[in-house]
Design a binder for these strands. Structure first.
Lengths: 124, 124
DNA sequence: TCCGTACTTTCCTAGATGGCTAATTATCCG
DNA sequence: CGGATAATTAGCCATCTAGGAAAGTACGGA
């Protein structure tokens, strides 16, 4: 439950997803494989930067690359995204239970495990 | 479709989630609010480091903080996680359609939009 | 054989990140 | 008041990141 072997992989996946250019690239790849130049087209960024972004995505296992003539086509590999989903969905009950339970949370804001003061102080 | 206002927020959220210590902290908070010391207990890391991690999570909007005596309790705010879920689930059809379609992908690895050579070369 | 196309690699800079120790702030309690 | 507890801030260091410019590699075609 707590620590799965994929835990370490999630580091790289989340890091790769933390950049909007890279997310846009994935979005593009969601509708089919593409070459580096095609992926770069929508951006004002220079090619080498896109190349680096692609490498990050590749190392995160989010894309697979081909090798056709001088082209290095990219294809989306959704597997790490499935792990992201698995991780995230564990919290779904929490955000769905939020009928302004947030308010409750802030009132429950005294520590639970130990008893760090606030014993006789009543609330607030 | 392409760019939503939350897009920018996702940057920080994904970045915050890209560290296993921070994900563990969220995991802990999923079962109730906690003080900084309580959150730090499972780690061998020093307090200031935990403090920084908490600040990252806070700036990403993933936790809300209270102020009770000398304690600064933390509570999970799942809202950004919901956005992560929304983003990720758009790819679910892709990873669910993978009845080893990956193989297909690798065969379809010629670019589609433009015609970068490979015209008379047939396949493979 | 040489040119153009498609990328990648190398080197640079500026800024963020993750960890530490030491010092500081804030609050409660005796 | 003075001490203990909770947590942050400040400073230091090593490493990583995002970008660009310039040079290098690899392949196809005339």
């Amino acid at each position: 439950m707590t620590i799965t072997p994929d835990e370490s992989r999630l580091d790289g996946t989340f890091a790769a997803l933390s950049n909007s250019t890279r997310r846009a690239i994935l979005g593009r790849l969601a509708q089919g494989a593409a070459t580096v130049n095609e992926l770069a087209a929508p951006f004002q960024m220079k090619l080498p930067s896109i190349s680096k972004h692609i490498k990050v995505l590749e190392r995160a296992g989010l894309i697979q690359r081909g090798h056709r003539a001088q082209y290095r086509p990219c294809a989306l590999d959704p597997a790490p995204l499935e792990q992201v989903s698995t991780w995230t969905e564990r919290y779904r009950p929490i955000w769905e239970a939020r009928f302004d339970r947030m308010d409750d949370y802030l009132k429950t804001l005294q520590p639970a495990t130990k008893e760090p003061a606030t014993k006789g102080t009543t609330k607030r």
